[in-house]
Structures are given as structure tokens and as C-alpha cells.
Nucleic acid binder design. Structure first.
Lengths: 130, 130
DNA sequence: TTTTTATGTAAGAAAACCTCACATATACTT
DNA sequence: AAGTATATGTGAGGTTTTCTTACATAAAAA
């Protein structure tokens, strides 16, 4: 079992993830609905989250604090993971173009400080050997 | 947050622990009843297990396979943790005496091979940086 | 043989979670 | 400014998971 497997093992109920991320269940489900995360399910259809999922949620939270919208965050998250996989150059260029458009709006904002609550980065890096 | 804290954070539902350890809920609860583990509880009284708990359960499973009984296993588990804490010499000697008595029976057994199912040792060592 | 140990199973209740729907504040678009 | 989209709150009704308690039982110990 390698690190990637460990990080993607379905381990946590939504209750635990709520505590870990300080997000509401509504938010977590909404982000799933929009494909920012794709947690597994139990046989009875209950969500089971991995370290990777929790990390993404913490990232989402962080980016939201900085004023990004979900569309932009989705691109950033994909950017992160797609860089670790093999992606055609075309796709990456497309992403970057769209990304810049979204980020431009961020620059015109410049307000808001990241009121980092608990851990706003990388839970798995905190927990999982790699 | 140090490693000990990480390892003792209440994270997992009993459902997850069942999958992780391949023990039945009955077994897990029984071991708690006999103080081999002491998982936390949610506000609504549902058990929440830590990496340490899961590790102990895997140890318990391993020792049971080797023919030890719960009394002996409990001493071994305490032995493990008490060595890391400060204990009076008296207490330790007492434990060791009792322990030997229990282990004697193990020696007269000598059968049974540990049919190591998934991970029979140290889940936290597998998951948690330390 | 009787007792103890470790586990199975079932019932009834409570907690946690599910989806769906509607409400709403804030941010965009025109 | 008015209308639309985004992100989240809230509540209802239903399902899944977990809880405790109690009784049953095979294997081991006394």
C-alpha cells in the first residue's frame, strides 16, 4: 500500500470531517455536488472521506477566505492533482487560461485576511507519512 | 500538536474500525468493556476511535491468534504504554509477575500460526508521522 | 461437571446521515 | 436598478448506523 492509497482510503464520516474542517455538512455536500471532492460511500450510501478529501476541503476553505469562487478553486485543485498525473499540454493550457480569468478578479479584491482557524493546508501531510 | 496527540485523536466510527481491523462490533465493544481500549464518545454517545485504539485492536487480534487470553493481552498492552510513562517500580514488578503466569500458558501451547490478514501491527506507524 | 471466557444474535431505541425542497444574503450581469 | 447566479441555512421525512441490554453457546479452565 503506497502513500497515494493511504491518502485516499475512505475513513471518515461526515461528522468527523465537520470537526476536522470546521465546515458545515451543507458546505461539504455542496462541494461534492460541484465535483470538488468525490468521497466514497458505504453500502448504505453514507459518505466516507479520505485524508485527501479533508485536505481538499481545507484548501477550499482557505481559498474561499481569500475570495475565490468555487469555479476557480476547482481549477486550482485540478491543477494540483493534474500536475502529478499525465495530462495533455492542451488541457493544461486551457486550464491556465481560464484560471487567469478567475484570478484577475482576486487581484481586484486584495482585502480579506485568511483567518486561519485550525489547519488550513495539508492534513495528510500532518498525518500521513510520505 | 505532537504525535501522541495525533495518535489519540478521536476520528473513526466503529464501522470504519470494523473494516480496518476485521473485528466484529461485538468484539470491539467487548474489549472496551474489559478496558483494553477506551474510545471517546460523540455527544450522542457513539464511539470514536483513534489510531492508537486501532493499533491496540490489531495487537489484540494478533495476540488472540497466538492463543493469549484477554487478561494476558491487557497486561501486555499496559506494559507497552506504561513503559512510556512513569510507573512505580512496584507496579511494574507486580505486572511482570502476573504476566509471567499468564504467558506460561502460552508456552504450553506453541501451536497456531498468525494468519496475518491485513495489518497486524501498527496502523499508526503506517499512517502517522512520528 | 460446572464455571468462565469470548463471541453471536436479536430487539428496541437513539443518533447520524441521507436527499429534496425552499429560503436568503451576497455577488455578479445586463 | 433589476434580474440571475452563487453559496449556504434550515427543515421535513426517511434510511442507515450505532447504542445498550439480554439471552444463547462453544471452547477452555477450574
Amino acid at each position: 500500500m503506497d502513500d497515494q492509497e493511504r491518502r485516499s482510503m475512505p475513513l471518515f464520516s461526515i461528522g468527523t470531517v465537520k470537526k476536522l474542517t470546521e465546515l458545515t455538512a451543507r458546505q461539504i455536500r455542496y462541494y461534492e455536488e460541484h465535483w470538488l471532492i468525490t468521497p466514497e460511500r458505504t453500502e448504505g450510501n453514507q459518505r466516507l472521506f479520505s485524508f485527501n478529501d479533508v485536505d481538499k476541503l481545507l484548501e477550499i476553505k482557505d481559498y474561499l477566505d481569500k475570495g475565490l469562487n468555487l469555479a476557480g478553486i476547482k481549477l486550482l485543485l485540478n491543477e494540483d492533482t493534474s500536475l502529478k498525473e499525465e495530462t495533455t499540454k492542451k488541457e493544461k493550457d486551457l486550464s491556465k487560461t481560464q484560471l487567469r480569468k478567475v484570478l484577475k478578479q482576486e487581484l481586484n479584491d486584495a482585502g480579506r485576511y485568511g483567518k486561519t482557524t485550525l489547519r488550513q493546508g495539508e492534513l495528510a501531510r500532518f498525518f500521513v507519512k510520505y
